[in-house]
Amino acid sequence: MPKRPKSPESDHPKVKGGPEESGRKQAGLGRRDFVKLVGGTGVAVTAGVLTKEALLPAESNAQAAAGRRGIGPGPVNITLRVNGEDKDVAVEPRVTLLDVLRDRLHLTGAKKVCDRGTCGACTVIVSGKAIYSCTMLAIDAANSSADILTIEGLAPEGQLHAVSAAFVDNDAQQCGFCTPGFVMACKAYLDAQPNPTYEQVKAALGGNLCRCGTYVGVRKAVLDAAMRMKGGRS
């Protein structure tokens, strides 16, 4: 897996989640922003304060403590490495990676659809491999110190990754709800297999469902993206 930049401020302003960022978002007042404003805690507050002084009765040093005896069921401090940045959150062991990404880190690209490891809408890349984030516990992802890549971290703000661009150009989405999952599955696949055949692409997408049925466009997009990634375009 390609190394993500260590200091993501310049490349990934979307996931920065600093106080200015929250302020800027709240000015737009989308549905999620409104909920955040009312709740009074943005990701910056959670991440910044909890690591220093535990406001919640969270157990610290989770990795070491979990060995011989269990930790939880209350909140536990964990660190997730998401899009090249360490994110500290306090979560109960039962919380999935998908729920932390969406509800705590406000990275809502990965979608919660079946929530049972079947549809692929929640696909993210962990340590270079496509996985269902609804089917991995957040504490498990933290334990393995895995590099987690979500669609928000795929390209710098305002730019499209070659796979995303190929999806746009090949009409590879209709309602678009499954698209982030498809893009992440395609990206992981092309990193491992840069020269796929049509049949191989079809098999590589076996873990993602599109209820609009846009599979033909998606397969074309993957082949197109493979060409772009090799040719260095985009």
Binding site: I71, G72, P73, G74, P93, R94
Partner: peptide
């Protein structure tokens, strides 16, 4: 899902007594 206690043993010696 119901809340649970979580253990992450590093060896079989640690793991088996947790079951």
């Amino acid at each position: 899902m119901q809340a649970f206690e979580y253990a992450h043993p590093r060896s079989m010696t640690e793991a088996l007594p947790l079951l």
